[in-house]
Structures are given as C-alpha cells and as structure tokens.
Amino acid sequence: MNHGRWKLYTFLGLGLAFLYLPVLLLIIYSFNESRLVTVWTGFSTQWYRELMQNRQLLEAAWLSVRIAATNATFAVILGTLAANALVRHGRFRGRTGFQLLLTAPLVMPEVITGLSLLLLFVTLEDLVGWPNGRGFTTITIAHITFSMAYVAVVVRSRLSQMDRSLEEAAMDLGARPLRVYLSITLPLIAPALLAGWLLAFTLSLDDLVISSFVAGPGSTTLPMVVYSSVRMGVSPQINALASIVVLIVAVAVCIAGFSLRQRSAGANSPPRA
C-alpha cells in the first residue's frame, strides 16, 4: 500500500470515527450493567427490560410513531402532487414562487417554523375554533409542512429522469390520462415514493424543536421525553431506547437508499435524438 493511499484511509477512518463513535459508544453502554452511564461494569440487558415497563416512554414512542406514519403518508401525497406540478406543467404563472415556497422549509430555521406555526394555530383557534387545543393534529400538520418539501425533492428528481415517451406510448396504446398515471407513472416512481415516505417518517420521528412549539399537554413525543429526562440525569434506559431508534432509522435509511438505486436503470431508456 503506497503512502498516499495510507493517508487517505487514515483520514477516512478519523472521519467515520468522528461521526459514528459516539453512536457506537451509546449502543455499547446500553448493555452496561451499571446505573452510571459512564462506568462500565459488565454486560446486561436489564435497561431494555426496564424500558419495556416504562409506560411514559412507551406511550411517547407510540405517539411519535403514529405521528410519523400519518405525516409520512400525507407528505408523500402532497409532495408528489407538488413535484408533478413542477415537472409536468411547464412554466405556469407563479411557478417560481411555488418552487421557492416549497423549498423554504428546507432552509428555514426550525425555531421560526415552530413559532410561526404555533402563532397560526392559536390565531385559528381564536377565529374558527379549530384546531381545538394542541396535540396529535397540530404536531402532524407541522411535520407535514416541512417533510413534504423533502418528499417533493426526491420525487421531482425521479420524475424528471423518467422517459416521457413511456407515458406517450401508453396513451398511444389507448390509455386515458388517469390510467397512464396509475399504471405507468406511479409504478415507475414508486421507489421514490417509498424513499420519500421513509425519509418523512424519520424526519418526523426525531423532530424535537418544532414539536415542542406545537405540542399540547398530554401529547409528549419521544424526543421530548428523552430531552427532558436527560436534563434530570441520563438513565441507561435512554441509551437502550436510543439504540433501538438508531436501529430503526438505519434500517429505514438503508431501505430507502436501496429502493432508490434499484431499477433506476429501468427508468433511463435511451434518450431521444
């Protein structure tokens, strides 16, 4: 192995260590026997067992999953519609404005998004009596506003890569526009939809800032519970919980990445001359 290559691998190793060593330590210490998070005394799964009996944590986790799933579903529907408008409808009036609005949540500081949504919900409640208090609904709506932007980006790139003549061929063979969309377009962008769904799911699952603004009493999400309990002193239960979350997120990201890469060759038919 020559000198330059050796250096490259060293820096790669350092980079990876910087990113993933803390996570690895967290997972290792979730199997620690000691109550003190920083002192290793022996292997044990007791914190996982205790976690399973912690109603507060489990309820928060269940709420988070429900919010994440609802959010992901709506974000995919709205994000796909937005991507369709941008890719398929040419230069309509207000297109630039729409594009800016759609990408704004990607760059907007979360504190601002959270605060402005809170103000919106409070004003709405005063004016029309909806949403009645804050909780599941408001958190979900808040999450949809930013995660649909991510979905739109993913679906948009897939849509613009797709060979238009596939849809034209379907139409030429007698399929009406709705049928073309259902039996040609949707199956071909399905990997992007799945990736977008998983992305929206994970974004929602670990969101703390926006959720804190728009949550109400009795609607504490998992990151909020974790954050508040860490301030009281870290329990190894949190380590166990975090390890499980890391596992779920890792699996989701892998599936998303894999499904995007898979069949992307199929969408790229030779270009028109």
């Binding site: 060979d163 003549s165 596939l166 034209e168 061929a169 379907a170 139409m171 030429d172 063979l173 007698g174 399929a175 009406r176 039996s183 040609i184 199956p187 071909l188 069949r263 199929g266 969408a267 038919s269 030779p270 270009p271 028109r272 001359a273």
Partner: peptide, 28 residues
C-alpha cells in the same frame, strides 16, 4: 391520441420497464 386508430413505435421503443414482454404487448 388514446382514441385514434393509429399506433406509434417510439425511437426509444418506450417499453414499459416494469412489465414483462407479454404484459407490454397486452397493455393496449
């Protein structure tokens, strides 16, 4: 296009990548 008694073969062939040969032919 979908009601015309005319069919077109595209330059890229535009075969539906998620369908088999048989399903492609059957689509119309």
């Amino acid at each position: 296009a979908y009601s015309r008694p005319v069919n077109m073969m595209f330059q890229s062939y535009a075969l539906f990548p998620h369908m088999t040969v048989e399903q492609n032919v059957e689509f119309g």
